[in-house]
Design a protein around this nucleic acid. Sequence first.
DNA 1: GCCGTTTTCGGCCCGACTGTTTTCAGTCG
Length: 574
Amino acid sequence: MDASRIARVLSEMGTLLELKGENPFRCRAYHAAAQALEGLPADLGVMIADGSLKDVSGIGETMHKKIVQLATTGRLAEHEELRRKTPPGLIALLRVPGLGPKKIKLLHEELAIESLADLRREAESGRIAALKGFGVKTEAKIKEGVAYIESMGDRILISQADRLASPVLAAVRAHPAVIRAETCGSLRRRAETIGDIDVLFSSTEPAAVLDALVALPQVATVLAHGPTRASVRLADGVQCDLRGVDDSQYPFALHYFTGSKAHNIAIRGRAIERGLSLNEYALTGETGPVPCRDETELFAALGLEFIPPELREHHGEIEAAAAGKLPRLITRADLTGTFHCHTHYSDGANTLEEMALAAQARGLGYLGIADHSRSARYAGGLEIDRVREQWLEIDRLNATFGDSFRLFKGTECDILPDGSLDYPDDLLDGFDYVVASVHSHFHLSRDQMTERLVKAAMNPRVTMMGHLTGRLILAREGYALDVAAVVDAAARSGVMIEINANPHRLDLDAAECRRARAKGVMLVINPDAHATDGLDDLDYGVSVARRAWLTAADVWNTGPPQDMAKRLAARRGG
DNA sequence: GCCGTTTTCGGCCCGACTGTTTTCAGTCG
């Protein structure tokens, strides 16, 4: 069993123990261990073998044994027993706002509620309001919460969150009494998916600002509304938390509400070690508060470099910041071009020229075109003569661009079920580069799929692997695959791995990218654009790279654009 | 269950808000 699957098991055990009414610190230990597993610096198997897993903070002796057992046998008796004893529907009840482990336990014991459906029925009957500790308001809130969950999924893509948050943030900043404002939480950390939107502002009169904000046209329902904090549901169902603080408190609140939770706990621990106390309003020492004008000063007061929000996951960033060894993270401005874009030759919406002009308008010095190969019939994959026609058009366009811009000839070539490529070798040799991707036969066994992708990653005609795991966030799990084995193969052969920047994919993900880079694999940020505005998704790819601790030197499509032709040729042994 | 330049036991981040309570427990972030 791999690290992230084991993390899910441990996290589920933590939740099941909560529902059982276990000691909350013991429950937290399982969640903390799961978190630690998600951020491992190396392969789990390797870390078990060389003993370094024992040194990971949050994994003690007991947890280590459980992890080893899961890694080797894929099973854990304690987990199976917990599952057997807990009705499976109980976990879903945690998603109902206002219901936590204690109330769910009571509902289960008193009314035998074991599912969302049970909960809705009992709430409608009025029996919940009669329970001790409950009341008519709680019951009404439960009914509303169940209806919402039944109508919507609980998380949204970061791209959707951006679209929802930006008008709200603009409205907050436009309020005359607001001094500073920012979105916080997982949105600021640029996570793949967002649960709800957090907006923080500073003002001398936060209550008045909140009064105005809950009346915004984007707000559908007000869930809570106090003098410093309000929770609202936006028109399309996403929850938005608004918080106001005094401007002197703003840096502390910004840091606190950005999280992650694990990062915050560790930072507070560091404050305590230094005889300080940190909460969301202030950093306080024995002689009184330590004023900080911004987050940089807050980190400095704790002896730390500024930690970019994308790194705040308690995956080693505090230790690195203390040692002055944080990487200089890649930015969008470092990207000088990109590969893997589609045109109307296959399933793209725009012409070669339109894509080229859009790339230039975004400050890129080159653009790689990688339309689908012939087997991808549903996507208009190119037969060989169409490929040659496209090459001619690219040559004609390049002649008009002069030295200022260049289109590269690529292909997103299907990896066939047996691991071979979808075009003959002599045609593949004519491309400037080859992106190899899986678009069919998703249901091979894990061993077969791994063998298929390892073979492609070892193919000397492959330049980079496209959307390696095939996942679609919130929609489809990736196919069964030993990612580490394919990454190892890519490391051996010098094949690059794509960070597919489409917000539905973000494939590879940040944790795998970080491990791949540690093995020496070069990453490349590609938008998988099917239209000109798809090029803007590069921002999401940069976020993944930053969350993976990558610098410009770790990503292929950086550096002087005029060198790229030579670098590509060198990759292809030319 | 984890962890240790005060500790191998006794802590474990902590404040706002809500609802059901006459002083606070539970939830949430």
